[in-house]
Amino acid sequence: MKSFNLKHSLLFLPAVLFMLLPLYGLLTAVLNSFGRHRGWTLDYYRQIFESNRFVTSLVFSLQTALIATLLSILIGIAFTRSFYPILEKMAPRVSVWIPMLFPHFVWGYMVILLLSETGVAAQLLTAAGWIADPQQFPILTRDPDGIGIILTYVWKEVPLVILMLLPVYASIRPEYYALVDTLGGSAWNRITAVELPHLLPVLMETSLIIFSFTLSAYEVPALLGTTFPEMVSVLSYDWFYGSSWQKRPLAFAAMVSISLVLLVLSFIGYGYLNKARWRAMRGSRS
């Protein structure tokens, strides 16, 4: 029994080594946010949650990240569902994944070139006579609703969702569908009874990845965000790299708060999946 445990701990070793640097960073951030160098205090957290700027920014970030995640997941599912027989082939599959080759920054610039008020789309629509002049093109980038940010992320993350879901769809045995049909199930039953149970763990995981990324990444909102409201990452960056270093603890407090949100979400997701798995093992249905 002992050797079994040892072997298990050894298997963890690469992961632990890999996590050492990020964990060290996180720990330093947490310590700094509690004022490591100036005496322990909760003051920085009080300051940010009392600041209208931060709270607005937090709400805006959560909202933008949530919309981007849901849209990416839904479009990704719809796409994979409709096209997975085609996507099994090499060429279509690679072409779907092309956006994944580009860094987010490059993709953000492309969205600006395409969709800004003087962008390609505005010029094409003007040339086609749909709008009288480019000025009438709706403001889609650097807008107060985060449309530009959401568009960039959705475009970039849908391929990721497809990447994650494709193997799952490919592994669903056709007999399951046949079973639903035999028992008189509808197309909706096919989804709920066959696909969802298969997809759920992957979906949960993918949503968490996308949500965490969109909530805390800097470059896309810096490029496509507007002056107000701003994403938390942009605000933290300004605090961190601002001219006086006095605001650095605020940046740490903001990012630690974000990490906490993500940590809690991950635990909820993990707990839920474990429960589902537990139920499946015991064979009970609810």
Partner: peptide
């Protein structure tokens, strides 16, 4: 520009 709703980053 843009009625001051957005300032260049």
């Amino acid at each position: 520009w843009r009625s001051g709703n957005h300032y260049p980053n």
